Simulated assay, not measured.
Amino acid sequence: MLIEKIVGDFGDKRRWRQYKARVKGLPGPYRASAEALERYLIYFGALSDGSTMMTMLEDLADLFERASVDGTSIRSVVGDDPVEFAETFLRNYSDGQWISRERQRLIKAIDAAEEDDDGGEGS
């Protein structure tokens, strides 16, 4: 649809607003932690697929909502190294990262170069 190409996917925008409302509803320390992780995941993750990004963020909100309700401490959720937690969490969504497409592009280019070589190793 032309309008979605101009302003973006309406479904993802709706999901974004719903996600932000969920995070805003978290108790202070859980909200601050979720927002800090969101920032890191968005910058570090470089997700190019909006739907994958929203799924990841919704899962993050689920995690912190459950932790809040259960009274689970933030450190029990993220562990001693929040960076390691974030990067491990992100690996579950790697298909949406731009680097995944670049990895596939590299593999295809090398495969094509190998085919063009015609096996003439001694030429």
Rank of each mutant, 00 (worst) to 15 (best):
A34I: 00
D116F: 01
L26V: 12
I3E: 10
M53F: 13
L2H: 15
W98L: 15
P27H: 05
D111E: 10
D116V: 01
E35G: 02
R14C: 02
E35A: 04
D49Y: 08
P82V: 03
R17S: 14
D81Y: 12
E87C: 14
G79V: 02
K24F: 11
E35I: 02
V78Y: 00
E65V: 06
R39N: 10
F89E: 00
L60A: 07
V7P: 00
R39Q: 09
R75F: 06
A34F: 00
S48W: 03
F89Q: 00
G11F: 10
D70F: 15
R22S: 13
S73A: 15
L26W: 00
V78T: 07
T52R: 08
L60K: 03
G122T: 13
A36L: 11
K20V: 09
Q97T: 07
D81E: 09
G122Q: 15
Y93E: 03
L60W: 08
K20S: 04
E115G: 01
E114F: 14
E84K: 13
E38K: 06
F89P: 02
A113G: 12
E102L: 15
S94H: 15
S76T: 03
R103I: 13
I3W: 04
K5R: 13
K108Y: 08
L41Y: 07
P82R: 04
A21C: 01
A109L: 13
K5F: 09
I99L: 14
A112T: 07
K24A: 15
P27Y: 05
S76G: 12
S100E: 07
F44T: 05
R105F: 04
A36D: 07
G71Q: 06
L47K: 08
Q97P: 06
F64C: 02
K108N: 13
I6R: 10
L57Y: 00
I74Y: 01
Y40A: 00
M56A: 10
R17I: 05
F85Q: 08
G28Y: 04
G11R: 13
A113P: 01
